[in-house]
Protein backbone atom coordinates (compact mmCIF):
# COMPACT_ATOMS: atom_id res chain seq x y z
CA UNK A 1 0.00 0.00 0.00
CA UNK A 2 2.69 2.37 1.11
CA UNK A 3 5.06 1.07 -1.49
CA UNK A 4 2.44 1.55 -4.14
CA UNK A 5 1.95 5.14 -3.23
CA UNK A 6 5.73 5.55 -3.23
CA UNK A 7 6.04 4.24 -6.77
CA UNK A 8 3.08 6.33 -7.68
CA UNK A 9 4.95 9.39 -6.42
CA UNK A 10 8.12 8.38 -8.23
CA UNK A 11 6.15 8.15 -11.45
CA UNK A 12 4.32 11.34 -10.84
CA UNK A 13 7.46 13.38 -10.09
CA UNK A 14 9.82 11.56 -12.41
CA UNK A 15 10.80 14.71 -14.21
CA UNK A 16 11.68 16.43 -10.96
CA UNK A 17 13.54 13.40 -9.67
CA UNK A 18 15.51 13.28 -12.88
CA UNK A 19 16.45 16.90 -12.44
CA UNK A 20 17.48 16.16 -8.89
CA UNK A 21 19.57 13.16 -9.89
CA UNK A 22 22.84 14.94 -10.79
CA UNK A 23 22.98 16.70 -7.43
CA UNK A 24 22.14 13.50 -5.56
CA UNK A 25 24.80 11.56 -7.43
CA UNK A 26 27.34 14.32 -6.86
CA UNK A 27 26.81 14.30 -3.12
CA UNK A 28 26.80 10.54 -2.97
CA UNK A 29 30.11 10.32 -4.75
CA UNK A 30 31.89 13.23 -3.18
CA UNK A 31 30.29 13.62 0.23
CA UNK A 32 28.66 10.40 1.41
CA UNK A 33 30.93 7.66 0.15
CA UNK A 34 34.14 9.41 1.24
CA UNK A 35 32.63 9.68 4.71
CA UNK A 36 33.85 6.16 5.31
CA UNK A 37 37.32 7.73 5.33
CA UNK A 38 36.54 9.25 8.74
CA UNK A 39 38.13 6.13 10.19
CA UNK A 40 41.55 7.58 9.31
CA UNK A 41 41.14 10.02 12.20
CA UNK A 42 41.29 7.09 14.58
CA UNK A 43 44.18 5.28 12.93
CA UNK A 44 47.91 5.42 12.64
CA UNK A 45 48.03 5.68 8.88
CA UNK A 46 50.69 3.74 7.05
CA UNK A 47 51.01 3.15 3.34
CA UNK A 48 50.96 -0.60 3.42
CA UNK A 49 47.69 -0.75 5.35
CA UNK A 50 45.99 2.13 3.58
CA UNK A 51 42.73 3.61 4.83
CA UNK A 52 41.12 0.48 6.19
CA UNK A 53 44.10 -1.70 6.98
CA UNK A 54 46.11 0.65 9.21
CA UNK A 55 46.23 0.04 12.94
CA UNK A 56 43.75 1.79 15.24
CA UNK A 57 45.16 4.24 17.72
CA UNK A 58 42.07 5.47 19.51
CA UNK A 59 41.95 9.20 20.13
CA UNK A 60 45.72 9.73 19.81
CA UNK A 61 45.33 11.80 16.66
CA UNK A 62 43.15 14.29 18.50
CA UNK A 63 45.72 14.85 21.19
CA UNK A 64 47.90 17.31 19.31
CA UNK A 65 45.03 19.72 18.92
CA UNK A 66 43.85 19.67 22.51
CA UNK A 67 47.30 19.38 24.07
CA UNK A 68 48.54 22.39 22.18
CA UNK A 69 46.97 24.84 24.62
CA UNK A 70 45.64 26.74 21.63
CA UNK A 71 42.52 24.70 20.99
CA UNK A 72 40.19 27.06 22.80
CA UNK A 73 41.72 30.20 21.32
CA UNK A 74 41.62 29.07 17.71
CA UNK A 75 38.15 27.55 18.03
CA UNK A 76 36.88 30.78 19.54
CA UNK A 77 38.58 32.85 16.84
CA UNK A 78 37.07 30.69 14.13
CA UNK A 79 33.55 30.97 15.51
CA UNK A 80 33.74 34.69 16.24
CA UNK A 81 35.15 35.55 12.83
CA UNK A 82 32.48 33.51 11.11
CA UNK A 83 29.71 35.10 13.16
CA UNK A 84 31.08 38.53 12.29
CA UNK A 85 31.30 37.56 8.62
CA UNK A 86 27.74 36.24 8.58
CA UNK A 87 26.25 39.30 10.28
CA UNK A 88 28.25 41.99 8.48
CA UNK A 89 28.22 40.37 5.06
CA UNK A 90 24.52 39.61 5.05
CA UNK A 91 23.59 43.05 6.34
CA UNK A 92 25.71 44.76 3.68
CA UNK A 93 24.46 42.47 0.95
CA UNK A 94 20.81 43.10 1.83
CA UNK A 95 21.47 46.80 2.01
CA UNK A 96 23.20 46.84 -1.37
CA UNK A 97 20.50 44.69 -2.95
CA UNK A 98 17.72 47.01 -1.77
CA UNK A 99 19.61 50.07 -2.97
CA UNK A 100 20.21 48.51 -6.37
CA UNK A 101 16.57 47.50 -6.61
CA UNK A 102 15.31 50.97 -5.74
CA UNK A 103 17.74 52.73 -8.04
CA UNK A 104 16.24 52.88 -11.47
CA UNK A 105 18.11 52.71 -14.75
CA UNK A 106 18.90 49.29 -16.07
CA UNK A 107 22.37 50.20 -17.30
CA UNK A 108 23.38 51.89 -14.11
CA UNK A 109 22.24 48.92 -12.10
CA UNK A 110 24.09 46.45 -14.32
CA UNK A 111 27.33 48.37 -14.14
CA UNK A 112 27.22 48.68 -10.36
CA UNK A 113 26.28 45.04 -9.98
CA UNK A 114 29.18 43.87 -12.15
CA UNK A 115 31.73 46.03 -10.42
CA UNK A 116 30.53 44.80 -7.03
CA UNK A 117 30.90 41.26 -8.31
CA UNK A 118 34.45 41.69 -9.57
CA UNK A 119 36.34 41.09 -6.27
CA UNK A 120 34.63 37.72 -5.99
CA UNK A 121 36.75 36.46 -8.88
CA UNK A 122 40.08 37.61 -7.46
CA UNK A 123 41.91 34.76 -5.77
CA UNK A 124 42.99 35.13 -2.16
CA UNK A 125 46.63 34.88 -3.18
CA UNK A 126 46.23 38.03 -5.24
CA UNK A 127 44.17 39.75 -2.54
CA UNK A 128 46.93 38.92 -0.04
CA UNK A 129 49.56 40.46 -2.32
CA UNK A 130 47.44 43.58 -2.90
CA UNK A 131 46.91 43.95 0.84
CA UNK A 132 50.63 43.62 1.48
CA UNK A 133 51.44 46.28 -1.06
CA UNK A 134 48.83 48.60 0.38
CA UNK A 135 49.54 48.08 4.05
CA UNK A 136 53.18 47.22 4.62
CA UNK A 137 55.21 49.54 6.74
CA UNK A 138 58.16 50.36 4.51
CA UNK A 139 56.72 50.88 1.06
CA UNK A 140 52.96 50.39 1.46
CA UNK A 141 50.65 52.85 -0.28
CA UNK A 142 48.67 53.63 2.86
CA UNK A 143 51.77 54.44 4.87
CA UNK A 144 53.29 56.42 2.02
CA UNK A 145 50.15 58.56 2.01
CA UNK A 146 50.26 58.98 5.77
CA UNK A 147 53.89 60.04 5.57
CA UNK A 148 53.03 62.45 2.78
CA UNK A 149 50.45 64.07 5.03
CA UNK A 150 53.02 64.34 7.80
CA UNK A 151 51.34 61.67 9.92
CA UNK A 152 52.87 58.71 11.75
CA UNK A 153 52.84 55.53 9.66
CA UNK A 154 51.00 52.55 11.18
CA UNK A 155 52.67 49.18 11.54
CA UNK A 156 49.67 47.09 10.60
CA UNK A 157 51.51 43.79 10.12
CA UNK A 158 52.86 43.84 13.66
CA UNK A 159 49.70 45.01 15.44
CA UNK A 160 47.07 42.33 16.06
CA UNK A 161 44.41 44.85 17.10
CA UNK A 162 43.77 46.03 13.53
CA UNK A 163 43.19 42.60 12.12
CA UNK A 164 39.67 41.66 13.18
CA UNK A 165 38.40 44.82 11.45
CA UNK A 166 40.64 44.38 8.46
CA UNK A 167 39.61 40.78 7.90
CA UNK A 168 35.91 41.54 8.26
CA UNK A 169 36.32 44.40 5.82
CA UNK A 170 38.14 42.30 3.24
CA UNK A 171 35.64 39.49 3.56
CA UNK A 172 32.74 41.92 3.11
CA UNK A 173 34.41 43.53 0.10
CA UNK A 174 35.03 40.20 -1.57
CA UNK A 175 31.65 38.62 -0.87
CA UNK A 176 29.45 41.67 -1.44
CA UNK A 177 28.68 41.19 -5.13
CA UNK A 178 27.85 37.52 -4.86
CA UNK A 179 25.43 37.93 -1.96
CA UNK A 180 23.88 41.04 -3.47
CA UNK A 181 22.93 39.14 -6.60
CA UNK A 182 21.23 36.46 -4.54
CA UNK A 183 19.23 38.95 -2.52
CA UNK A 184 18.46 40.98 -5.60
CA UNK A 185 16.99 37.89 -7.21
CA UNK A 186 14.86 37.33 -4.12
CA UNK A 187 13.64 40.94 -4.17
CA UNK A 188 12.83 40.83 -7.87
CA UNK A 189 10.61 37.83 -7.26
CA UNK A 190 8.48 39.70 -4.70
CA UNK A 191 5.00 40.21 -6.08
CA UNK A 192 4.81 43.76 -7.47
CA UNK A 193 1.15 43.98 -6.48
CA UNK A 194 2.27 44.33 -2.90
CA UNK A 195 4.27 47.41 -3.77
CA UNK A 196 1.40 48.84 -5.71
CA UNK A 197 -0.94 48.24 -2.78
CA UNK A 198 1.53 49.87 -0.40
CA UNK A 199 1.84 52.87 -2.67
CA UNK A 200 -1.94 53.28 -2.89
CA UNK A 201 -2.07 53.15 0.91
CA UNK A 202 0.37 56.06 0.91
CA UNK A 203 3.48 54.26 2.14
CA UNK A 204 6.70 56.17 1.55
CA UNK A 205 9.87 54.50 0.31
CA UNK A 206 11.19 53.62 3.77
CA UNK A 207 7.92 52.09 4.84
CA UNK A 208 7.82 50.13 1.59
CA UNK A 209 11.29 48.73 2.28
CA UNK A 210 10.67 47.98 5.94
CA UNK A 211 7.18 46.55 5.63
CA UNK A 212 7.26 44.86 2.25
CA UNK A 213 10.78 44.13 1.03
CA UNK A 214 12.42 43.00 4.24
CA UNK A 215 9.66 40.71 5.52
CA UNK A 216 9.58 39.05 2.13
CA UNK A 217 13.32 38.46 2.34
CA UNK A 218 13.11 36.54 5.64
CA UNK A 219 13.01 33.06 4.09
CA UNK A 220 16.07 33.79 1.93
CA UNK A 221 17.94 35.32 4.85
CA UNK A 222 17.16 32.40 7.12
CA UNK A 223 18.23 29.80 4.57
CA UNK A 224 21.48 31.59 3.72
CA UNK A 225 22.31 32.12 7.37
CA UNK A 226 21.47 28.54 8.28
CA UNK A 227 23.72 27.26 5.53
CA UNK A 228 26.53 29.54 6.67
CA UNK A 229 26.10 28.50 10.29
CA UNK A 230 26.90 24.91 9.38
CA UNK A 231 30.38 26.05 8.44
CA UNK A 232 30.92 28.23 11.45
CA UNK A 233 33.83 26.13 12.69
CA UNK A 234 35.60 26.12 9.36
CA UNK A 235 37.91 29.06 8.88
CA UNK A 236 38.31 30.31 5.34
CA UNK A 237 41.83 28.97 4.92
CA UNK A 238 42.57 30.79 1.68
CA UNK A 239 41.68 34.11 3.25
CA UNK A 240 43.47 33.75 6.58
CA UNK A 241 46.55 32.12 5.18
CA UNK A 242 47.07 34.58 2.37
CA UNK A 243 46.29 37.64 4.43
CA UNK A 244 48.28 36.69 7.53
CA UNK A 245 50.70 34.00 6.40
CA UNK A 246 53.18 32.77 8.98
CA UNK A 247 53.31 36.01 10.88
CA UNK A 248 53.40 34.88 14.51
CA UNK A 249 52.91 38.44 15.71
CA UNK A 250 49.29 38.33 14.58
CA UNK A 251 48.25 34.82 15.55
CA UNK A 252 46.58 35.83 18.80
CA UNK A 253 44.00 37.73 16.77
CA UNK A 254 43.94 35.82 13.51
CA UNK A 255 44.64 32.17 14.05
CA UNK A 256 41.72 29.93 13.09
CA UNK A 257 41.46 26.16 13.29
CA UNK A 258 42.38 25.63 9.65
CA UNK A 259 45.54 27.73 9.67
CA UNK A 260 46.59 26.28 13.00
CA UNK A 261 46.22 22.72 11.77
CA UNK A 262 47.94 23.52 8.49
CA UNK A 263 50.92 25.03 10.25
CA UNK A 264 51.22 22.22 12.76
CA UNK A 265 51.04 19.42 10.26
CA UNK A 266 52.59 20.78 7.09
CA UNK A 267 55.99 19.39 8.04
CA UNK A 268 54.89 16.09 9.52
CA UNK A 269 52.31 15.24 6.84
CA UNK A 270 50.34 13.10 9.20
CA UNK A 271 47.09 12.23 7.48
CA UNK A 272 45.52 10.84 10.67
CA UNK A 273 46.09 14.03 12.64
CA UNK A 274 44.73 16.31 9.94
CA UNK A 275 41.69 14.05 9.56
CA UNK A 276 41.14 14.30 13.30
CA UNK A 277 41.00 18.09 13.07
CA UNK A 278 38.51 17.81 10.21
CA UNK A 279 36.30 15.46 12.23
CA UNK A 280 36.40 17.84 15.17
CA UNK A 281 35.23 20.71 12.96
CA UNK A 282 32.51 18.61 11.35
CA UNK A 283 31.13 17.42 14.67
CA UNK A 284 31.00 20.98 16.03
CA UNK A 285 29.44 22.23 12.79
CA UNK A 286 26.85 19.45 12.87
CA UNK A 287 25.93 20.23 16.45
CA UNK A 288 25.60 23.94 15.69
CA UNK A 289 23.41 23.51 12.66
CA UNK A 290 21.15 21.07 14.51
CA UNK A 291 20.81 23.50 17.40
CA UNK A 292 20.13 26.52 15.19
CA UNK A 293 17.69 24.61 13.05
CA UNK A 294 15.91 23.44 16.17
CA UNK A 295 15.66 27.04 17.38
CA UNK A 296 14.28 28.20 14.04
CA UNK A 297 11.79 25.34 14.09
CA UNK A 298 10.57 26.35 17.49
CA UNK A 299 10.09 29.88 16.23
CA UNK A 300 8.52 29.07 12.89
CA UNK A 301 8.20 25.54 11.58
CA UNK A 302 8.03 26.45 7.92
CA UNK A 303 11.27 28.32 7.89
CA UNK A 304 13.51 25.60 9.26
CA UNK A 305 15.78 23.75 6.86
CA UNK A 306 14.43 20.35 7.95
Amino acid sequence: MRLRSFWHDVKKYKMFLLMLAPAVIFYLLFAYIPMAGIVIAFKRYDYAGGIFGSAWNGLDNFRFFFDSGNAWQVTRNTALYNIAFIVVNNALQIFAAILLFEVGGKWFRKIIQSSLFLPYFISWVVVGAIAYNLLNYDIGTVNAMLRGLGLEPVDIYNTPAYWPFLLVLVSAWKGLGYGTVMYLAAITSIDTEMYEAAEIDGANIFQRILKVTIPNLYPTIIILVLLAVGNIFRGDFGMFYNMVGNNGMLFSATDVIDTFVFRSLITSNDIGMSAAAGVFQSVLGFATIMAVNYAVRRYDKDRALF
Partner: peptide
Protein backbone atom coordinates in the same frame (compact mmCIF):
# COMPACT_ATOMS: atom_id res chain seq x y z
CA UNK B 1 65.49 44.05 7.37
CA UNK B 2 61.98 45.04 6.47
CA UNK B 3 59.70 45.67 9.40
CA UNK B 4 57.16 43.40 7.75
CA UNK B 5 59.68 40.70 7.00
CA UNK B 6 57.32 37.98 8.24
CA UNK B 7 54.78 38.80 5.54
CA UNK B 8 57.18 39.57 2.74
CA UNK B 9 57.04 37.10 -0.10
Amino acid sequence: WSKNVLNSK
